[in-house]
Simulated scan of single mutants.
Amino acid sequence: MTDLTERPSAAVDSRAMSNLLVRVGQARDRQAFRALFDHFAPRIRSFLLQRRVPKAQAEDITQDVMLSVWRRAASFDPAKAGASTWIYTIARNQHIDQFRKAKRAEQMDETDPSLQPEPAPAADDLCEMSESAQSVGAALETLSPDQRQVIDMAFTEGLSHSEIADRLDLPLGTVKSRIRLAMGKLKTTLGDLV
């Protein structure tokens, strides 16, 4: 039996790291993640610096790697790989992705029309858009509070009908009905703007 106060062997250390990673994946255990972060972040940074990654970029990649570890820990399978192998694979892949992005950026044609910003709208177009926005705002005020709420959630927040029903604790049919009635009223009020 190994006394855990002594320096653990590589196998015990590897198992401990795998167990920490499993705890992060299964229970979002912050203390386990902190231990993984404290152990791996300096090593990953050193790993990247040895590959001649600039210091600032190495620090950014290290943060991205550890964020990926937090997000993807549930997909870690200790039967397939050790924690160290799994985490360093993420680091290697992040480094390759950064390298490829930098290469693509170097090859980018800055004169490409698709990369040019849209021209500013003409003053009369801005005025027309402002008037349209005011008309829509006034039309929304004519809706009942229930109808206005579902329209706002659907179009401003981009929620689906099911998500709105869940959030408001309403039947899906009620949400659909409110949206349909509200859209009909807005179409009548606004005419060509809808």
Rank of each mutant, 00 (worst) to 15 (best):
D192M: 05
I44R: 02
V175E: 06
R28N: 11
R45T: 09
F76P: 04
E6V: 12
L181T: 15
A122D: 14
D97R: 08
E141C: 08
D60H: 03
S132K: 14
W86L: 07
Q149R: 15
I87E: 01
R72A: 11
V194C: 05
I179D: 04
E6Y: 05
P8S: 06
F155M: 04
R43G: 00
S162E: 14
Q107W: 10
R71Q: 15
K101A: 15
L143S: 00
A182K: 10
K176P: 08
Q26N: 12
M129H: 04
I151K: 00
P54I: 04
K187L: 02
F76D: 01
D64Q: 13
F40P: 11
V53A: 06
I179E: 13
L48M: 06
E6R: 12
E157C: 02
A165P: 00
R167A: 10
A133C: 08
S177Y: 11
T5Y: 15
K187P: 02
A102P: 04
P145F: 07
R34Y: 13
A79E: 15
Q134D: 14
S84G: 15
G191I: 05
M129D: 09
L181P: 03
V65I: 12
R180H: 15
R51C: 01
V53Y: 00
P113G: 09
L21V: 09
Y88H: 10
L186N: 07
G82F: 06
T188L: 06
D112H: 09
M66R: 02
F76W: 07
L172N: 06
I179W: 04
T111F: 11
E131C: 04
M17E: 07
G137S: 12
F99G: 03
V22R: 14
S14P: 01
T62S: 04
V194A: 10
E128N: 14
S132P: 03
G191D: 13
E110A: 13
V150Y: 07
Q147G: 13
E131W: 12
G158L: 06
P171F: 02
D77W: 03
A41N: 00
R43M: 08
R178S: 10
I87T: 03
M129L: 11
L190D: 12
S9C: 01
H39P: 03
H39Q: 12
R178F: 11
N93G: 09
K176G: 00
Q31L: 12
M153L: 15
L67N: 09
K103A: 15
L172K: 11
G173L: 04
I61P: 09
S14K: 04
A154P: 06
A41F: 05
A58F: 02
Q107P: 03
D60F: 07
S144H: 02
T189D: 15
R45V: 01
D166I: 03
A122L: 13
V24S: 05
K103V: 13
D38Y: 12
L115H: 10
L49A: 01
A56R: 07
L21S: 04
R72V: 06
P121Q: 08
C127M: 11
E118S: 08
L186Y: 03
Q63V: 07
D152V: 05
R167W: 04
D77G: 05
K103R: 14
R23Y: 03
T111I: 02
P8H: 11
S14D: 10
A16I: 07
K187W: 05
A58R: 02
A105P: 01
S177D: 07
P121D: 13
E163I: 05
F33Y: 13
N19T: 11
